[in-house]
């Protein structure tokens, strides 16, 4: 997989190979060690180590006062994190599954996102919420959703979707330094993915996309796990003489407009690939952004979106795969798009 074409210079630290989950844990470890105000909160994140073993053994290093098992109280727990963030702590709140954030919409949408504005800037809410998301685990409709676009619709929140171990660590550390609420959507299928991760502290900037592969024939804007599917497709396409540029959006609020528009101006064709339900999703926003800008004049073909099917995530493995974009879908869409002229 060609992962070395990020737009940002790599930090100069030495790197090691870590999994995505290990990279997140390392970020939390660094933050807990450096800043007494940092606490972790969530369901079964202590001795259990988290449902996906992301917090792992951190409780043994930092104790139950800083790695806090909450009751199964998503609304209350998220609200406690919000109140703690307003008054001096830096909580990292783990939702066991991002689906369960639906139980905490009140605190996320009405409180965390709005308190600063409602109070005329008198407070900030520096809370980080970690959201294990996405399908592919056979857990069916209530444990597999990709709801990031819901939250990205809310002014006051920042929403990121790291696709690599390096970014998972760097974006979490950046989220902790951010004075406002940051929601991190972590695709569950990425937790075991390995990659080079710089040692020590570094930041991956919030609001900056990364060009993962350079190309001239079409732009594929993808998020999270779809970045990897897009890169896999791009390699096949290269063999057919189609050079796809793959843009990893990384942050969906605020969106890195310049990187997306710059790529579209260069390639004149745009394919958006994301796991969330297609309608009213991230692809709609990207498409509109292009349509409302000068980049529209550069388009040689209609924009194409590939998103989740218009149904809950099903249980049967064949159905589950069919409900979200796969590499063959990307190949098919990209070939059609590359051959098309307006």
């Amino acid at each position: 997989m060609n992962m070395d074409a990020g737009t940002l210079a790599r930090p100069e630290q030495e790197t090691r190979e870590l999994s995505y989950a290990e990279a997140i844990r390392e970020a939390m470890d660094i933050a807990l060690a450096a800043d007494e105000r940092v606490v972790l909160m969530g369901e079964d994140i202590g001795v259990y180590g988290g449902a996906f073993q992301v917090t792992g053994d951190l409780v043994h290093k930092y104790g139950t006062d800083r790695v806090i098992d909450t009751p199964i109280s998503e609304l209350g727990g998220a609200g406690v994190a919000v109140g703690a963030a307003m008054t001096g702590l830096r909580p990292i709140f783990e939702f066991q599954f991002s689906d369960f954030a639906t139980l905490a919409m009140e605190q996320i949408v009405n409180q965390a996102a709005k308190v600063r504005y409602m109070l005329g800037g008198a407070v900030s809410v520096p809370v980080v919420m970690r959201m294990p998301a996405g399908s592919g685990t056979g857990a069916a409709a209530q444990h597999s959703q990709s709801l990031e676009a819901w939250f990205a619709h809310v002014p006051g929140l920042k929403v990121v979707q790291p696709s690599t171990p390096e970014d998972a660590k760097g974006l979490l550390l950046a989220a902790l330094e951010d004075p406002d609420p940051v929601l991190i959507f972590e695709h569950k299928l990425l937790y075991k993915m390995k990659g080079e991760v710089p040692a020590g502290h570094y930041l991956t900037p919030i609001g900056k996309a990364a060009i993962r592969r350079k190309g001239t024939d079409l732009t594929i804007v993808a998020t999270s796990i779809m970045v990897h599917k897009a890169l896999e497709a791009a390699q096949t396409l290269a063999g057919e003489g189609i050079e796809a540029e793959v843009v990893d959006l990384r942050t969906i609020r605020p969106i890195d407009r310049e990187t997306v528009l710059g790529s579209v101006r260069k390639t004149s064709r745009l394919l958006c690939v994301y796991e969330g339900v297609k309608t009213l999703g991230i692809g709609a926003e990207i498409s509109a952004m292009v349509a409302e800008s000068d980049a529209f004049d550069y388009l040689d073909a209609p924009i194409v979106r590939l998103g989740g099917a218009e149904c809950p995530i099903p249980y049967n493995p064949d159905l589950e795969r069919a409900a979200v974009p796969q590499v063959p879908d990307i190949l098919q869409a990209a070939r059609a798009l590359a051959g098309e002229r307006v």
């Binding site: 606490v39 609304l75 209350g76 609200g79 109140g83 703690a84």
Partner: peptide, 14 residues
Amino acid sequence: LPIAVGAALSAKRL
């Protein structure tokens, strides 16, 4: 209500 509990958590931790 949860926000108040969060403020109390801050007071205790800090």
